[in-house]
Design a protein around this nucleic acid. Structure first.
Lengths: 98, 98
DNA sequence: AATAATTATCGTACATTTGCGATGAACGAT
DNA sequence: ATCGTTCATCGCAAATGTACGATAATTATT
């Protein structure tokens, strides 16, 4: 097979994206926190972590883009929670991989 | 709790390292390949991937440093295989996390 | 000794990630 | 209208990741 034609498996691409989202302890902490507290806003998460608010916001953005969390505006706060559908998908992909 | 004193959980640090190792499709492909073929050398892996030999070597190094694979020199080749102990640990950490 | 085979490492280029402070946007309360 | 609260985004700096070609290291073969 020619190198040019090679395509990574779709499952591997998806799994790599999830793994990347999980590859920082702050993001693991956020997910862990959200899975306990069910529903909480940015401020609570900032208080949970040793980094600046802007940095937390960036991590939240990445988790959201990876599909692992959802944000809901309730002005002036934003509530976050686990995206259960993608969470399940990620869980299954990891399980299948190992 | 003061920000200075915050420490990430040991499990999260370990899991983040494993996740980082899994965060690239080439490395997932390598691990998948190794789990099938049990034991094979660098050349086989290079043939499996669309990237240069030096790049593959770099990915192998990262997987080795993450503890997920082991290399055995059988000059002039190097055989690689899954590090079963850490593989199991990673599997359990992911399972526990989800 | 010279060559070939196999793999790791080096140097380089470019992109991405991580973190911070400052600023902006939205809105409720005064 | 102004202020305070809450959160996201911007701009920057430093570090890390990804890929490549070239080169080095090791050793078996000629």
């Amino acid at each position: 097979m020619k190198k040019e034609d090679f395509k990574y498996q779709e499952d591997h691409l998806k799994l790599a994206r999830f793994a990347k989202a999980l590859s920082h302890p702050a993001r693991l902490h956020i997910l862990n926190f959200l899975s306990c507290c069910d529903r909480c806003y940015t401020g609570n998460i900032v208080d949970e972590l040793p980094i600046a608010q802007s940095s937390v916001s960036q991590h939240l953005k990445e988790l959201k883009e990876a599909g692992l969390i959802q944000g809901t505006i309730e002005t002036p706060k934003v509530y976050y929670c686990i995206d259960k559908e993608n969470w399940k998908l990620a869980k299954e992909l990891f399980k299948e991989f190992f």
